[in-house]
């Protein structure tokens, strides 16, 4: 039987589906009897989802660049072209 330490060490491979089938079976045998690891696994998965939702959810994206930044980039690009550094 795997220990909690072994389960937590290989949790990412389990979550990402990278464990071989026999290891998955050993993993799940431990989960069937260890509530702490079940809780840890659920919160580990929730952490990944929460991170994605917080950083990429509604309100975290933009349609367009602010006009002043567009102007600044255009000016810098023109300066590059004029200095011959664009190639």
């Amino acid at each position: 039987m795997l220990t909690c330490r072994e389960v937590l060490d290989f949790l990412m491979a389990y979550v990402d589906g990278e464990l071989p089938a026999d290891e998955v079976a050993r993993f799940e045998k431990h989960l069937a009897v260890c509530l702490s690891c079940v809780n840890y696994l659920a919160s580990y998965r929730a952490t990944i989802r929460a991170g994605k939702a917080a950083m990429r959810g509604p309100g975290t994206s933009l349609d367009k660049l602010p006009p002043d930044l567009v102007k600044a980039v255009e000016a810098a690009r023109r300066a590059l072209v004029q200095s011959g550094e664009s190639e």
Binding site: T3, C4, R5, E6, S36, N39, A50, A53, A54
Partner: peptide
Amino acid sequence: GHQTRPAEPWAPDRLERAETSEATARLVR
């Protein structure tokens, strides 16, 4: 090999809020 402090479950409503509430999103950020 057991955890020193067993992991406690996370509250289902807080899990749901983690993906929908701006306050929780701020906390996560």
